[in-house]
């Protein structure tokens, strides 16, 4: 558990970090909370020559409300999201998701931005971020840009984030009073990651589903929006039968993973059961 040697930079300004990234390119890795990167370095699965620790850059941390949105700094820890009154009032789904991540030590150090940028296929945040249709703010050599969550996740540990870019913030629209969110997860018992995690954001109009967004993690090599479920349920009455029928479509077009922890068939089953239960919970 001894990493290889590396050069360490701790810039205090975003520009400085970006120019270090420019300079070192592929050799560099950005360090946030360190809970994905450092274990892989200790195992020497990753041996970056340069570490750019963005922890001392001001302005990348914290949660605020602005123009009907929650603005979450990329360096905000899982624990801060779990325990924030603002989050619990405005977007409780985020707090609920944070509480399901790892253990206390991981939540105290790990960051939402680090998790999203790493894009572990079984991480919890992507499900919620997808279901909330969040916007990810990215800084690069050409300035800032914003990308939709649905466009951000591209595959196994692959995102839209360029080698010379840094994820700076996550913008989440604050849902209205008729909208409820739920995150349900089966933990992979060793790692605590999601064997399956389903986030649902559902807006009711009476007993009818006005709109629904379903984000699923852990099932495929990238988190996804279960669009077949969403179209099946939108406009339908929120009864047990309709919910179950819609949930059956949660792996439509999805190539479910198989590994030592779960077979493909089991993951498909989990996606359906957890989707059904998450919708039932959000609709109740």
């Amino acid at each position: 558990m001894i990493p290889g040697s590396f050069e360490y930079f701790a810039p205090t300004a975003l520009d400085e970090a970006l120019s270090l990234l420019q300079e070192h390119g592929d050799d560099a890795k950005v360090l946030a909370g360190g809970h994905s990167l450092i274990p892989t370095m200790k195992l020497r699965l990753a041996e970056p020559a340069v570490i750019i620790d963005i922890g001392r850059i001001g302005g990348l941390k914290g949660i605020s409300e602005s123009d009907g949105k929650l603005v979450i700094g990329a360096l905000t820890t899982h624990h801060e999201l779990e325990s924030s009154d603002l989050v619990q009032q405005k977007v409780p789904l985020l707090a609920q998701t944070a509480a399901e991540i790892g253990d206390v030590q991981v939540r105290n150090k790990g960051t939402i931005g680090g998790s999203l940028a790493h894009a572990d296929p079984a991480a919890d945040w992507p499900a919620a971020i997808l279901a909330l249709d969040a916007d990810l703010q990215i800084a690069g050599p050409n300035g800032e840009r914003s990308v939709k969550a649905t466009d951000f996740f591209q595959g196994l540990y692959e995102t839209d984030l360029g080698d010379d870019e840094i994820l700076t913030a996550i913008h989440v629209s604050i849902p209205d009073a008729n909208t409820k969110g739920t995150y349900l997860k089966l933990h992979q018992v060793a790692s605590g990651f999601a064997l399956t995690g389903v986030a649902v954001v559902l807006t009711k109009s009476g007993d009818t589903c006005q709109s629904v967004a379903v984000g699923i993690t852990g099932v495929s090599d990238a988190p996804y929006r279960a669009s077949a479920v969403e179209s099946e349920l939108t406009g339908a009455a929120l009864d047990a039968e309709n919910i179950a029928a819609a949930a059956e479509r949660s792996v439509d077009g999805i190539d479910a993973l198989e590994d030592i922890h779960a077979s493909q068939a089991y993951r498909q089953n989990l996606a359906k059961v957890y989707t059904r239960r998450a919708i039932e919970s959000a609709a109740s």
Partner: peptide, 29 residues
């Protein structure tokens, strides 16, 4: 009974070589 098991693949590689893949019981369980 519930969590643990060393898994070697057919070529003799230990697939459960860390706490990410080998589950010891935790107090909360």
């Amino acid at each position: 009974a519930l969590y643990e098991g060393a898994v070697y693949d057919e070529s003799g590689q230990l697939l459960t070589g860390s706490f990410m893949d080998y589950a010891v019981p935790k107090a909360t369980q």
